[in-house]
Design a protein around this nucleic acid. Structure first.
Lengths: 335, 335
DNA sequence: CTGAAAGCGCTAACAC
DNA sequence: GTGTTAGCGCTTTCAG
């Protein structure tokens, strides 16, 4: 592995000059530059980014914290962030908090020690995570949730709930229910938006199947709960909004096992518009979070804070309802 | 940010002693150790991993290359790898090759310059990627595919195809088809295994819907092709094996749009057993690649090569058929 | 336009 | 047991 010193020796200049050439410093005679570049090629020189980081005080690495990796909603955001970061010349260290404050704290300590330039995170808890993030000496951008004191990129879950309620009313549903947690931070918001919009239109939320979010891929619990619930009092709604796409999938499976079909007997809508919404049959109507945009924007905002010391700011992006088969009458082609 | 020197000054010892204490070197008097540790706490000292890397010649970072991030098959592997790496004290830099040799080359150069300790990768092409990986000066482990000269962790796609053929025959299907690419490296193997096993049991592969793998999330093309195909000659099979879970989803959607239902009119099986297989309705019978195990094993093998200079080796893991609803007669409960 | 000198924060080989 | 001396490979003043 050739070092700058090696180049310098061959080219008969000092290390500093080599450094200047490589960083395109203007004050180098064309001739010297050429000589140096010749040896850079000849020796197949590659910079040592570790040394560069130590001396230069920046690593060009960002840390990315998510509560889980393999749920399509998150993996799509991860993909968008990695993509934009790479484009901007940054590498991404991916970290899975698994929704543990303890692990989140450890991860942040590690990233601090690695001297990452900045952090993008889905915080475990907007309140309890605060101290750990405040200890950071580098900028951080929160995504998909709000956290006071930091730049945040997210959609209004309240508005999302409203939009979906509006869609349900437009389709003409009157008996409407909700499946999912009603008190978690973001879930509570979408639930409230949904409920309030219905109420404002004098439609009562008939039914709430209160089940936990299908975290950590342990989704089948949701299916079980929905089944138990629906097996009891029977179908009391024409349409349900689910807390997220996985919950919607599980609900569909549950109703299906009970002999109901979607959307003929009952309509289901999801939230997030992840890959799942597009791939299941029937295709899922869902509130779309602009995942790609969230990722891109988060990187952009972070870099602004890094380079131009921009002030923390809130970025509320637009969501919209993507109507697919799961909330409309589906007419199969004749065989 | 307190440095070792600061600790040393306060404790009245040399930097070296501080270093010794922190790395649990035995030859430090208990008393000095205590004094040092006192100041470590008092000054809230945190090591600078960049400096440590430069001096110590190891970064405790591994690079992970995948063709895409947001396809459940890959994101589940990523999650497993990150998890195991974290457990072993390594950070993971995630990189998306997007199936481009050019980008793969650039990423490898960057990781080399970052002095990552090792690399785990799904190579873009087992042949054409070879030179880029050989330039690496650190160990690399390939996953999900074989690549000569490197440690590899994968399943036999040929055997996987056979296993699925066996399942189809067990269920009693006689008119059997295949949906997916037939000439891509791994696809060709599973196709061959599937076809040969059927042939060995005197069952002919009636139908091959040759469509590209749904790469880069551009899955809908698959649906379109299947629809066009099936709309023409009509249904000629009782059961199809799809190249992967997404293709299976798309096929289900296609048949569904044509008025056929799965599994009543036609059975479909997937390959990979990703999240999709578990969440769609009907739940998908699929050949399970042990994603969690692939990830864990890959890290383990890499670390062995790092630390004990183990020789490259092939690890062929076991796959198995997970039978779900999509290939069995589904009897809905009475309403 | 170029080089000398100092330093980033830590580890390791060798003395005392 | 502990300190001294050298780096690791690069960047950044500051002279000349």
């Amino acid at each position: 592995m050739a070092s700058m010193q090696d180049i310098a020796d061959r080219a008969g200049v000092s290390r500093v000059t080599v450094s200047r050439v490589l960083s395109n410093h203007p004050s180098v005679k064309a001739e010297t530059r050429k000589k140096v570049l010749y040896w850079v090629k000849a020796l197949d020189y590659e910079p040592n980014l570790i040394a560069q980081s130590l001396a230069g005080n920046r690593t060009n690495i960002i840390g990315l914290l998510v509560p889980e990796i393999a749920y399509p909603f998150f993996s799509e955001i991860i993909e968008a962030i990695e993509n934009q970061a790479f484009y901007e010349g940054y590498s991404t260290i991916i970290c899975n908090t698994r929704r543990s404050l303890e692990k989140e704290k450890n991860i942040l300590a590690e990233l601090r020690q690695r001297k990452v330039d900045g952090i993008i995170a889905v915080p475990v808890s907007p309140e309890k995570s605060l101290p750990a993030f405040q200890r950071l000496q580098v900028p951080a951008v929160m995504i998909t949730k709000r956290m006071e004191g930091f730049s945040c990129v997210y959609i209004s879950h309240y508005a999302g709930g409203q939009q979906m309620a509006k869609h349900f009313l437009n389709v003409g549903f009157q008996k409407i229910g909700y499946i999912g947690p009603t008190r978690d931070t973001t879930s509570a918001l979408k639930y409230a938006g949904f409920q309030n919009f219905l109420a404002a239109n004098r439609v009562e939320l008939v039914d709430v199947i209160d089940c936990p979010a299908p975290e950590n891929m342990n989704a089948s619990l949701v299916c079980k709960l929905v089944k138990e619930y629906a097996a009891g009092p029977g179908l009391r709604c024409e349409a349900y909004l689910a807390n997220d796409d996985i919950t919607a999938c599980e609900a569909i499976a549950a109703f299906r096992e009970l002999g109901y079909s979607v959307p003929q007997d009952i309509a289901i809508a999801g939230f997030d518009n992840s890959l799942l919404a597009k791939e299941i049959s029937p295709k899922l109507t869902a509130l779309a979070q602009p995942l790609e945009e969230i990722g891109r924007k988060a990187v952009e905002v972070l870099l602004n804070q890094l380079n131009d010391h921009a002030e923390p700011q809130m970025y509320e992006l637009e969501s919209r309802v993507i109507v697919r088969e799961s909330t409309i009458q589906f007419v199969p082609a004749s065989k």
